[in-house]
Design a protein around this nucleic acid. Structure first.
Ligand SMILES: [Mn+2]
Ligand SMILES: [Mn+2]
Ligand SMILES: [Mn+2]
Ligand SMILES: [Mn+2]
Lengths: 228, 228
DNA sequence: CAAAAGATTTAGTCATACCTGAATTCTATT
DNA sequence: AATAGAATTCAGGTATGACTAAATCTTTTG
């Protein structure tokens, strides 16, 4: 079946980042990939050629135009992403890691766990649909739930939302949010909005919380479901 | 401190197998290593040179004579072995693997887990001293318990022993032993011995067990503590 | 003890899998 | 059509480690 893991860790990383860029609607440019992968653009071009020429092809690549994942490429990407997010979930739920500590560890382990371990891990954790950051975990067949979230930055005074996801691997940001009580599952109300700077004043819906202000740098990375 | 994991997976594997050969009192020959590592003898010689010249040196190597681990080499070997055995224990205790399924998985994971993960895993498992095969797990400081076991093959009729360890990665052998009820912790009595072929007739000390015969191929790989 | 057998090492290559800087070419913008 | 910026090509480099074949050493044996 899924003859997935003939791929090197490096190839898996390229595919993963291509997928993540596509998912966020960002342009999959050579430079964007180079930045994320911490290599030079020339290296990216080289790898894109190889991914496009591999058998089966993992991407469709038109020079200077852009990159799309083929079915095989998408599958391989989702495989790694499933591994990554399951591992993160495991580290938090079973081993007592905090959500800012799990990323690097998952980045190394994601390439070496077997499909059997993946399956057992998923079942041990109760087949979770989301990881500790609220990132959706592709299911066994690599399907993802529909995404109905919006950036917190798009809410306006009076609107209520429930935090679903924090899209960042920055340890400091994660620790800051943790400390402010802003984690997936928490509801909040927007009580004020400053135009020009985009600051939001928010009030988490917990007994002992008081309102505070967050800037765009934060509110663009926190994703919420709007509550009626 | 232990600046351990600058080493490649390949180096870790060489060191691990050198340690395991030394531990079993087997000669650490070029060919023995070549067999275990599934490479040609010339490749082993090449790597031995590198291990001996590395900074710090990981082995002491005299051409045509043999190999000893330096302190640094021994430490690195024990690190990997600790990882391997902790992972095996985890796979069996937390994930429901059987003891014949864990080896390959552990062989891949042992090279990529962090010291933090190692520590948390150990603590989750209650700092186990032995893995599912009865192999001792080096503790945090890489110390091993003294080994007081003998091969089952060395017992004679009338002697009682408790199985402590099965030194084999052969799936079939492990499954066979499992099915015969021979696993670490189980006590048995030797009821007969055939000279020349070395066959032993043994009786496990469990209510519904009956005596059966095992050959040297098996009894040399099962290690027991002799009971009074 | 000398020769043969067996084990090990040397020497020289090969392979894989990337990554890189510099020069070039393409695309988009004005 | 000029230009800036992005992307690509090119030629080369690095890092690891494996391999074959021939040479050399060690051990065994007649
Ligand atoms: Mn998988
Ligand atoms: Mn995550
Ligand atoms: Mn360790
Ligand atoms: Mn074991």
């Amino acid at each position: 079946m899924t003859k997935s893991f003939v791929y090197t860790a490096s190839i898996q990383d390229y595919l993963k980042h291509i997928y993540l860029l596509l998912e966020r609607g960002e342009a999959v440019t050579t430079t964007a990939l180079a930045q994320r992968l911490k290599v030079r653009p020339a290296s990216v071009t080289g790898m894109l050629r190889r991914l496009a020429r591999s058998e089966p092809p993992l991407i469709v690549y038109q020079k200077h135009r852009g990159v799309m994942l083929t079915e095989a490429g998408k599958r391989a990407a989702l495989e790694v992403i499933r591994h990554h997010r399951l591992i993160e979930t495991w580290l938090v739920q079973s081993l007592g890691y905090s959500w800012d500590e799990v990323h690097e560890e998952a980045c190394r382990l994601e390439h070496v766990i077997s499909e059997q371990l993946e399956a057992r891990l998923a079942s041990l954790l109760g087949n979770p649909a989301y990881d500790p950051h609220g990132d959706p975990i592709p299911d066994q067949d690599l399907n993802l739930p529909p995404d109905t979230t919006l950036p917190l930055a798009s809410l306006r005074p009076g609107q209520q939302g429930r935090i679903c996801r924090v899209q960042s691997e920055q340890k400091e940001l994660l620790r800051y949010l943790e400390q402010k009580g802003l984690r997936p599952g928490v509801s909040l109300v927007v009580v004020d909005y400053s135009p020009f700077d985009g600051n939001l004043t928010i009030l988490p819906q917990s007994p002992d919380a008081s309102p505070f202000v967050i800037g765009l740098a934060v509110s663009l990375k926190v994703f919420v479901e709007v509550l009626p």
